[in-house]
Amino acid sequence: MLSNVVTLEGMPGRMARSRRRPVADNAGDVRFNSPSLSDAADDFERHLRPLWERAQAGDEAAYREALQRMAGRLRAYLRRRMQSLPDDLEDLVQDTLLALHLQRGTYDPSLTVTAWMLAIARHKLVDLWRRRGRQEALHDPIDEVDEARLAATPAAEATQRDLRTLLCELPPAQRDAIVLTKIEGLSVAEASERTGASESAIKVQVHRGLKKLAELVRRA
């Protein structure tokens, strides 16, 4: 399965060319080596990587921008693999973003951010197929389209379900912590004052709430 993750990135026609241009931060890496990365993908990673590193260190603006770029890339990736489920596309983009956020501690700096992100997207896609009871295997499109060039794909589609509605189903403490700090934009200290919960409790509730939200999303 690991090698599949790589071949998903692979654009057969481009392999020969990109083999001559290894990605700098992955040069010694045999398995996730650049044969699979096209020039555009290379470019995408080169822009994303520094943003992502700042985001991981706690830079909010960098994190926002990284997620925006990733959303475009995810949309291009998923659209080509969900042609029979177009209505679910934007929902799955959101599910994947939520998973990326919850799992950002599992990012391994020895890998490209793209490989990590697409492995999660693929996992979410397989999970969706499984829940829908589809038997069809995950077919990788074979036509030569460079997804990384489509990365700026705008979110044209509407979502089927609204995360706000699901947010209301969370336990009140978790919901309030998320709404106050993440939507109304209060600081943790302000939210703590407003609810009477300690600051660390607010942080825990936000994290648990987002995890619970990801669970609700899977059942929705």
Binding site: E60, Q94, L97, R104, T159, L163, R164, K182
Partner: peptide, 21 residues
């Protein structure tokens, strides 16, 4: 919720990523 709003929500006050998970 629009995807852009979700991104704003996730990034807001997110802090550093957990280490040594």
């Amino acid at each position: 919720m629009k995807t852009d709003d979700l991104i704003l929500m996730l990034a807001r006050d997110a802090g550093p990523a957990p280490r040594a998970v």
